[in-house]
Structures are given as C-alpha cells and as structure tokens.
Amino acid sequence: MPRFMPRLSTILLSGLLLAGSSCGAALAVPAVQEEVFSLVDTLAIMRVTLPGEGGAPVRYYLSRPAKKSPLVLYIQGSGCTPPFVGLGTPNRYSTLYSWIPLAQGGRYAVLAVDKPYQSDESQKGERGSAIGCAGAFNQHFSYDAWLATLKQALRHALRRPEVNPARVLVVGSSEGAPMAAGLARAFPEVTDVVLLGANGPTQLYDFAANIYRSSDSDEVKLQRLQELDAIFNAISADPKSTGKFAWGHPYLRWSSFFAQSTAENLTHSKARVYLASGMQDNSVPILSTEAMYAQLRAQGRDVTFRRVPGAGHNLAPEGRPVTEAQKEFDAFITWFERR
C-alpha cells in the first residue's frame, strides 16, 4: 500500500440497532468515521466525520500528540477552500498557515474543521470569495450554520483521549475571528482566543471605516457610503437569498455575519484575548480592531493587542506572502504558553 493512502477505521460509537416495535425492522444509527492520513513524512492526522445534527456531516481534522495535550483550533477565513487538499494523494497540503509546524511539534492536539457542505472539488473563482464554490456550499453557508458545525466538532474533540480540555486555544483569522468569538461565548472551555485581522463591531462597520480611511474627497466618501447603505438595504430585504451576491458572497452569508459583533460576543466569554492586526490592512481596517480592544479594556479583560507596522491583512508586509509573518504566529503561541 502506498504510504500516502489513508488507513480507514470506522468506529461505531453510536451503531446500535433499534428494533421497530410493530414490524421488527432495525434502524442503524449513523456511525462516527475515522480515517488516518499521512500529511507529511513526520505527521499523520485523523479525519473524523460525525453525523450532522439535522444537516451535512461534520468533518474535522486532528493531529495526534504523544500524550494528552492542550487543544488548538484554527478557524479559516472566508470562501470555500478546504483546510486540507489532496489527502490520500501525493499532492496533499494544508491551506492553514502554521497548522502543520505546530502539529509536528507534538505539544498540542491541533484541530481544523471543514465548513458545512464543504466540497473537495476545486473552486472555480477567486479564493476568499464564494464565487465558483462547488456543490451545495453557497446554498447553506451562514454564520449560524458554520457556528453549529464548529460547536459540534469542538464538543466531540474535547472528549478525545489526545485532548486535555483544561486548556483550549481558538485561533480565528479574518472571517474566522467572529467565529472564534462565537465559540468562546458558547464554550467556557475556551480559555484563550487569538484573532488575526479581526473586525470588532459588525462587518458592516468595516466597510464604512474603509471608506472613511480612503483618500477620497468627502463628496466621494458620501457617495460611497450611500451606495453601501443601498446594498445593505437590498440584503436586508432578502436576507436568506443564496442566488443574489454582494462583494463575492450570497446575501445569506452577509445578513448572518452583519448580525454579529465580534467584540460583543467576546465580552460574554471568559477567555484571554490576543489581537494582531496589520496597520495597513485594506480588508479589515485596524480601527475596527481598535474599537474591540477599547471595549474589552474598558471591561477589565485580559487582552493583548499586537499592531504590526506596514503589514496587510495576512500580517506580512503589504503585498508579501504570509510566510513573512512567521514571527507574528510564533508570538501568539508564546503568549499562549506563558499562561
């Protein structure tokens, strides 16, 4: 068997047969499925598939440290690119920067989760948008559906023998930041949260803040703000539409995220918070993160804010690859380890 082929072990955690009272028919409860993949030469990971709670199956990925270890969950940004590509083939890789090196270190059980209705097929549009996403992804993706998926995966992972549930770090990048805040609010087990390129108030605020920070005249800014209001009104008039798009995503996605405040959700959590934002971020303006930082500080929370000069949305110098931001990723792990 080639070393890149998965070893499949199906575990029937819930595979009991329920006998029908009148006809004697048996109904099998769907099983939890586990597969083991070689990701790189020194790292094997598990892919766990859970029966969905009223929706698509929930699929997550977990590294296997040698002993019971703290859990680190990475939540990806926007779009339909899966966290792992090509598993079971020679061309396998992770799209989550720093996930593999952290897992290889063996000090943590490192977790990632597929978005609901995530397809393994390649996207036909620009990464980060929802244009060209395969399968039923766009018909279902919303803040609420994604949060429900993350909650089910985290709940299951916390019971695994590899995981020490006393220390749980959730790392949310970009769109993953409001999801991390929502998880921290829902799970008191989340002890620490890292938000990278994170909005503070609703994402609607980010659009307005970016308009104000532009070099346009006040007249042009006013026109752009009016256009923003018009798009928001259109989304509000048809909030569940999956066929109408704005800024590369269906209305359903925007209406559900506009209803959430990352800052507000964090104020209802007990987690320590680490924020890192590029001062030249053109996607999520750092002023949005500043608003959250101010709110958390006023609440007396344990919050650290790393403002990265000259950096863009990926914490690297504007226009440069994320690999040039390695020290920023090292910094938040160091922060976590100092607890």
Rank of each mutant, 00 (worst) to 15 (best):
Q223H: 12
R159V: 10
G172Y: 05
L204F: 11
G86I: 01
C23N: 15
K244D: 11
P51Q: 10
K270E: 13
D120S: 11
V85F: 05
F187C: 04
C23T: 15
P57Q: 10
G132S: 02
L158V: 09
N91A: 13
A325P: 04
V110T: 11
E162Q: 12
P116V: 03
R107T: 05
A184R: 00
Q295K: 15
K124S: 14
D120R: 11
Q139I: 04
T10Y: 11
Y274E: 04
S63V: 07
C80R: 00
L154S: 03
S78K: 01
L296Q: 12
F258N: 02
V273F: 06
F4P: 01
P70K: 05
A209W: 05
T10W: 11
R224F: 00
E175I: 07
K270G: 13
R297S: 15
I211E: 04
G105A: 07
V48N: 00
A26N: 12
T191A: 00
M46E: 13
A291M: 12
V168Q: 06
K151T: 10
G55H: 10
K124L: 15
L315V: 13
F332N: 01
A44Y: 01
P161L: 07
R167T: 06
P188F: 09
I131W: 08
V190Y: 03
V36E: 15
P317C: 03
F257G: 00
T149N: 11
F305L: 15
F332P: 00
S288D: 11
G312E: 03
D281I: 08
R213A: 14
V32F: 06
T81C: 00
Q226W: 02
E162W: 09
L169K: 07
E227S: 09
N199Y: 00
T267I: 05
A311L: 01
L18N: 09
A246I: 07
Q76E: 08
D302L: 07
T95C: 05
A177F: 07
L96V: 15
H156L: 09
V29Q: 10
P30S: 06
V110M: 08
F336P: 00
R92D: 02
E328T: 09
A181D: 06
I75T: 00
A177N: 05
G88R: 11
R320E: 12
P161W: 03
H156I: 08
G20P: 04
E189Y: 07
